[in-house]
Design a protein around this nucleic acid. Structure first.
Lengths: 195, 195
DNA sequence: GTTGCAAATGAACGTCCGTTCAATAAACTT
DNA sequence: AAGTTTATTGAACGGACGTTCATTTGCAAC
């Protein structure tokens, strides 16, 4: 009736975040109770408070982790070469990163309104950093003369929305492979900015 | 302590839906209580049940109304002419319709997961109808030879995501007018599908 | 001016919520 | 093997939830 066999914070901690992520992605933060998360992990609700000070912090940690992962993964990419090939790599990177993290993406977009003002500002700053990376590529292409874009900021927002929207309809058992979809999206992206 | 002066179902009913829409768009369905909605209307919680059988039905009604309005408004548009001008009108229509209904759009996209299976199916069917309208234009353009699109279904989903994404960043007091934004988006849309 | 209908009240129902905490058992250290 | 630390239980807290309903009041028609 107390500590269970094989229990360790290093295994329970990740399980808590995984369960919270899955449940919040499915039903929304407000619709998921701490008791439901605990049940998914296999503990009582009180045990969750060894891993998070409260529910809001748990949500913010999930979103912040996702954004940090995104920025770090992007920084590890190859940023050399001309604007056209950089744009192609961005497109491919964005699709692959987001399609393999559908729960994180869902939570990070849907639960923004449940964050406190300061936590919201932190997430938004990271998101603007990522958007800025794409805008930088678009500006470079303008300078090279290979792109013709009336407004690089708007174009960056539009392209990211287009790419991320893929998460809303892609299904593993669908008609097309990820590679095929990547090719189709790259065609759309390339043509939309090409001079 | 009972019926209030000037109370009529024809005024209270719409106020209930407006308050529910605004609050659900801001905080999410699960995060908004019937008591909060009632307070916004200026009645007690019990009075809401003169206007909806339960909370779930209220949410579904809001979403269904939005989709019906969308399909009806689209049907009233001019559908004549060549594919290129039809696509331009679709782009303009979509932006104007969605930008002027940000709360409805927000709720209709964010609260899908809170619908029962059958209600979800109804909304999805309407959404597919709208997506099909765009895909029809793209197919027509292919037939005319003015568009070059590897997959019209994917392109339709991608373009709608791009256009609807505008709702996530547009602000009335922003740098650009709606007309300017329409022009930028139309450039992106046109170029992305042009032969 | 009475009657009948419409609209809202406010209290109540049982249930679930996030969170706290003393007690307790497992794991680790020596 | 004893002692310390770590992880969990289970009960409890006050409060909020969606929903129901007998009651009361305002309105409209005769």
């Amino acid at each position: 009736m107390a500590r269970k066999q094989g229990s360790h914070s290093q295994t329970t901690g990740p399980k808590v975040r995984e369960a919270a992520l899955r449940l919040i992605a499915r039903h929304g933060c407000a619709a998921v109770s701490m008791r439901q998360i605990a049940a998914e992990v296999g503990v009582q609700a009180g045990a969750l408070y060894n891993y998070t000070p409260d529910k809001q912090s748990l949500l913010f940690d999930l979103m912040q982790s996702h954004m940090l992962e995104l920025l770090e993964a992007w920084n590890l990419q190859d940023h050399s070469g001309d604007a056209m090939s950089r744009l192609q790599r961005f497109t491919q990177f964005h699709i692959q990163f987001h399609l393999t993290r559908s729960d994180q993406v869902f939570v990070s977009y849907m639960e923004l309104r449940n964050l406190s003002a300061e936590n919201f500002a932190k997430i938004e700053a990271m998101r603007r950093g990522y958007e800025g990376a794409l805008e930088g590529i678009l500006q470079a292409g303008e300078a090279e003369g290979v792109f013709d874009i009336p407004d690089t900021r708007v174009a960056a927002m539009a392209l990211i929305a287009m790419l991320t929207g893929l998460n809303n309809w892609y299904r593993d058992d669908g008609r097309l492979t990820i590679a095929q979809i990547e090719q189709i999206y790259w065609d759309l992206v390339r043509k939309s900015v090409e001079a």
